[in-house]
């Protein structure tokens, strides 16, 4: 897969008797192998944007193209992780990871060996035969990431994947995600409302305004990968975080 391009993408929902302008217009592209983060206030249309890129929702205006071809249905080659892990209680952990391979579109695209290797890579190999309800939130989310990576997607789409986790677990998940991104060489779009997380996990951050979400700023993150958590104490890191925070303060999203 090569670049994903969005040109003047907008989304308007009809609600009741009126309309709700949820997103856009936004234009940007994601290069192969890139790690892009989008940070924005709650309700600004981030999830809507992700669903449009994944082909789960149609844009009201503008175009999304992959390799120059318009996205018309669910995007093959995209693995998605939502805030809720959405594991199936009636399957063991490894069978949850195998789920995408059972759909006809992905026939033959992954073996049990691969599923096991992914679980190991994410540090949950020992739970392969256990059931989802026996695992904690952080562990379950690792399984959800393994499932998203199962069919070797060209692109990983993450919608606030760690928002429901406590701070320590969240830091740990940042480390785990970074490691698996490197191992799998997967292009990543991370949506988050944590400024630190956005900067730590990406090569580039897009800052979104409140609804209807537009792009306020685009910031390169120069630190080489892989990064240590300590990079967050680097003055240059703090400067980037400050620049993002200022956008939110200026637009009234953050008030002191």
């Amino acid at each position: 897969m090569s670049a994903i391009r969005l040109d003047n993408v907008e989304k308007t929902f009809s609600v009741g008797d009126g309309e709700l302008h949820a997103l856009g217009p936004v234009s940007f592209s994601i290069e192969p192998g890139e790690r892009l983060a989008i940070v924005g206030p709650s309700g600004c249309g981030k999830s809507t944007l992700l669903r449009i890129i994944a082909g789960l929702e149609e844009a009201s205006a503008g175009t999304v193209t992959v390799d120059g071809r318009a996205v018309t249905g669910p995007l093959a080659g995209a693995g998605i992780v939502f805030q809720r892990d959405l594991l199936l209680d009636w399957r063991s952990i490894i069978d949850n990871v195998m789920l995408p391979t059972e759909f006809r579109r992905n026939a033959g695209s992954g073996s049990r060996t691969r599923a096991r290797a992914l679980l190991d890579e994410l540090g949950v190999g020992e739970f392969a035969e256990r059931s989802p309800w026996e695992l904690s939130g952080g562990m379950r989310q690792r399984v959800a990431i393994a499932r998203a990576l199962m069919c070797r997607p060209a692109m990983l789409l993450l919608d606030e994947p760690f928002s429901a986790l406590d701070a320590l677990t969240r830091d740990q998940m940042n480390v785990v995600l970074q490691r698996v991104q490197t191992a799998e060489k997967v292009t990543t779009l991370l949506i988050t409302h944590s400024i630190q997380e956005a900067v730590f996990l990406s090569d580039r951050v897009l800052v979104m305004s409140s609804r209807p979400g537009r792009i306020l700023d685009e910031i390169e993150v120069p630190f080489p990968q892989p990064r240590r958590l300590a990079v967050r104490e680097d003055p240059a890191f703090a400067e980037i975080a400050r620049r993002i925070r200022l956008h939110f303060e200026r637009t009234g999203v953050l008030v002191e």
């Binding site: 669910p74 009636w90 992905n106």
Partner: peptide, 26 residues
């Protein structure tokens, strides 16, 4: 069935029938 789960299945390429047998029925 959880709408988010159905959407996830759709993103994985599930057909209506596959979503029925693998998600809705269980």
């Amino acid at each position: 069935a959880d709408p988010d789960l159905l959407q996830l299945a759709r993103s994985m390429g599930a057909t209506r029938w596959e979503a029925l047998t693998k998600i809705r029925i269980p």
